[in-house]
Design a protein around this nucleic acid. Structure first.
Lengths: 252, 252
DNA sequence: CGACATGTTGAACCTCATCAACCGACGTGG
DNA sequence: CCACGTCGGTTGATGAGGTTCAACATGTCG
């Protein structure tokens, strides 16, 4: 489970890799120190359950590295991933006694955790922090609704392409305005899938087999190359995007 | 389109049917008067487009009565309803220049609208109001994720049952703690569908025909009775819920 | 090495989409 | 007033896209 919980000093926060992109970016130095006093860095291994469904909330977290899946499941074993949490996102459902889903580490995860009571007090004291978290939540809601279109209206092929495109966009090199510095060329991407086939299936509302077949299709038609089971190379993201199809094509 | 925009007085707000359940419930009398000064009651007819996708946000609204559908669509004509807004919910995406989806009246709608600039200023001045809206958004996010499970993992039969159950729960009589006062008995419900078959299909990620067939199935097996095309009677909600199946069965 | 987890591929089956016909209600114009 | 078109809804026949079941490949760890 978690190793070496260490309190974070003001300095650590100030140097934090995700300082400016995470919710804590809303705070000044003094407030940051306050936050640092209640926060601890914790490490999770792939597969660790971070928050259990229906259980009392005990902490929130900022993800420093790694990917966490938010999962809903039914009694008969069906599962659906309802969200992926990347760095520097915030994990946890504020103002609720219990958590409405499973949160499980998809990869090894490094996270900065805060006890819920302390953090919620901080939220009360610092409207800026709450505002930042609110904006965060609005973005999450937008993404969730985007994904509802994928789940409800896209074909298996489009779903898999959409997933790959989503992951590609989350990669550090892509999406920033310096895509030209990409060694593979301006429209290529190269990344490791943070999810197993089973996870991808649960994210897309498909079966493992269908995901595997669609990946093979994309490979066969040259849209992607599978370097290993997990490592993907996309020669031309625009092609991938056009296969992902529809929804928000206006995005350049 | 909209008829008779009238400024709302403090008194009107104080008497408002949804006063305590809507976001404005966070405000005291004085603040409420302030809100009343910028708000106008507007009426929309079924089919009216309330907010257009990608267009600049000009106003927010509290729904007083009626149902609004939030819809995403793709260039090739596929559509997905990504949310339903009932009274006393709040409509609009705060802190964003444009709207990420279509909002269209599913039924006739009465709404209390606020110009976005004025309302966002009010949010800044009154953290309580922003907090209330935040909680609202968190609940919307929870619902969206619930629905992702429905879209990704449920069969057509379960989807239709889930939809009916959702509508039934939204009915005034049901869900409140006085269900025993229900003239039809403690577990029955009787309501009018606020959506056409086409809308239901777009909400469930199905086709019109499949929705129609599944409704007929539920009728044939006695789970529901269709009084007219739109009016539904559910003799036993527990049965409907069990067909809707899975996800969050813990809910009594 | 064998055991196990992860991933791929094939064949058969089934659910749901598609295409099409039909019904009743409603509104309009001749 | 009735003929007509339109709209929302139902039902049937057919077929495609995904699931299911099963075999096999690959990689890793004891």
């Amino acid at each position: 489970m978690a190793h070496d919980p260490v309190h974070i000093g003001k300095n650590t926060c100030a140097n934090c890799a995700i300082r400016h992109r995470a919710v804590c970016g809303a705070l000044n130095d003094e407030e940051l120190a306050e936050l640092g006093r209640i926060g601890r860095v914790r490490h999770f291994k792939a597969g660790d359950i971070i928050l259990a469904d229906e259980e009392a909330t005990t902490f929130f977290a900022n993800i420093i590295s790694g990917v966490i899946k938010l999962e809903k499941s039914s009694a008969d074993g069906r599962q659906q991933i309802v969200g992926l949490v990347f760095a520097p996102d915030f994990l946890g459902r504020a103002f609720s006694k219990s958590n409405p889903y499973f949160a499980q580490a998809a990869t090894d995860v490094e996270a900065c955790t805060f006890p819920n009571t302390g953090f919620e007090q901080l939220l009360k004291k610092h409207p800026d922090l709450e505002h930042r978290l609110f904006e965060n939540t609005l973005n999450e809601l937008d993404s969730a609704r985007e994904w509802m279109f994928v789940l409800g209206r896209k074909s298996a092929q489009e779903k898999v392409a959409s997933f790959l495109y989503l992951i590609a966009k989350r990669q550090p090199l892509i999406g920033c305005s310096h895509a030209e510095h990409n060694p593979l060329g301006p429209h290529a991407a190269n990344f490791e899938l943070p999810l197993t086939r089973a996870d991808i299936a649960d994210f897309l509302g498909l079966t493992i087999e269908t995901v595997s077949r669609q990946l093979s299709n994309l490979k066969r038609q040259g849209t992607i190359r599978l370097l290993s089971g997990r490592e993907v190379l996309v020669p031309d993201l625009r092609q991938l995007q056009s296969i992902a199809g529809a929804s928000d094509e206006a995005v350049a």
